[in-house]
């Protein structure tokens, strides 16, 4: 048994003992009904999830990105578009990859993504993703890729501003949109500092990455993580100390994008750079 597991167990034990004692205390003072309601609320929360064999109160999902491993192959982008049926043009992405290139003697990086017109010209189609070879005759001092997606923030500004509550953060920490409830005001698109939200004109609703909620609630990985050939993208449950993302956070000095926004992102990065925004 590892030290961490022991710690967790001890904490759980103490927690449970505390709860039991508190419960006894409440019961002793005639508050049995109150305690029962608390349990009932928790049970209701767990039961409110549509899939019976999934308890969303038992998970805390998070995402890790080791940018030092990304090779810009864009399989993640393709997988996401296919898996989630995202509009197939260059203006709608639930995930995308940015290329940062420092030329020799330059202080700032040149940045582009596969949605850049030059890259689209190189691939020949808006639904085929590729980085062109524009720097082949240049002297490059440093270059790297940064995958981006919704950060599923703990304090999401997008959720704060939704006038009808169509977008919300689930019990297990995923920011979702109810497309049947969204009024299409696009306030959430404005509020996201990461440009992670998109608007589907044909459907009149906002859209975003769901960390493939339909997959993760069945024990699968998000499509982008599944197809990543280099292990750049990792995903898992923070409640499970041995999950890939827990290990990732434990073993690396991780950062988040735009921490000053106060949104508390739940995508953790390794290998960010001063010019990444």
């Amino acid at each position: 048994m590892t030290k961490d597991k022991k710690k967790t167990e001890r904490r759980e034990f103490l927690c449970a003992t505390g709860k039991a004692l508190a419960g006894l205390g409440v019961a002793a003072t005639g508050g049995t009904l109150l305690a029962r309601e608390d349990d009932a609320a928790l049970a209701a929360k767990a039961a409110s999830f549509p899939t019976k064999d999934y308890d969303w109160t038992k998970h805390r999902w998070a995402y890790g990105i080791d940018a030092t491993k990304c090779i810009g192959c864009l399989r993640c982008v393709e997988a996401c578009k296919v898996e989630n049926d995202v509009v197939g043009d260059a203006n709608h992405f639930r995930t995308w990859v940015e290329r940062y290139v420092y030329l020799e003697g330059e202080d700032h990086a040149l940045v582009d993504s596969h949605a850049d017109p030059q890259n689209i010209a190189a691939s020949g189609s808006e639904s085929e993703y590729r980085f062109d070879n524009r720097y082949k005759d240049k002297k490059v001092s440093k270059a790297f890729f940064i995958p981006k997606l919704c950060n599923h923030c703990a304090h999401p500004a997008c959720v704060q501003v939704c006038p009808v509550g169509a977008t919300f953060r689930t019990e297990d920490g995923v920011v979702l949109i109810d497309h049947d409830y969204c009024i299409g005001c696009r306030y959430c698109v404005q509020a996201c500092p990461y440009g992670a939200r998109l608007f589907i004109e044909e459907e009149g609703v906002s859209d975003k990455c769901t960390w493939c909620y339909h997959r993760i609630t069945k024990g699968l990985m998000p499509a982008c993580v599944e197809v990543c050939p280099t292990g750049t993208r990792v995903f898992g449950d923070l409640n499970d100390a041995s999950s890939p993302v827990s290990e990732f956070i434990k073993n690396n000095q991780v950062q988040v994008l735009k921490p000053e926004s106060g949104n508390a992102p739940m995508c953790f990065y390794v290998g960010l750079d001063k010019d990444v925004s």
């Binding site: 959720v159 501003v161 969204c182 009024i183 299409g184 005001c185 608007f199 009149g204 609703v205």
Partner: peptide, 28 residues
């Protein structure tokens, strides 16, 4: 202009029926 702008103007009443109180828009 607000109604014309909305993706789903027919749902606009939801902001009054089920207003999300943290939204600056909900009170409009």
């Amino acid at each position: 202009p607000l109604l014309l702008h909305l993706g789903h103007p027919e749902r606009s009443y939801l902001s009054m029926v089920t207003p999300h109180l943290t939204s600056a828009f909900a009170m409009f």
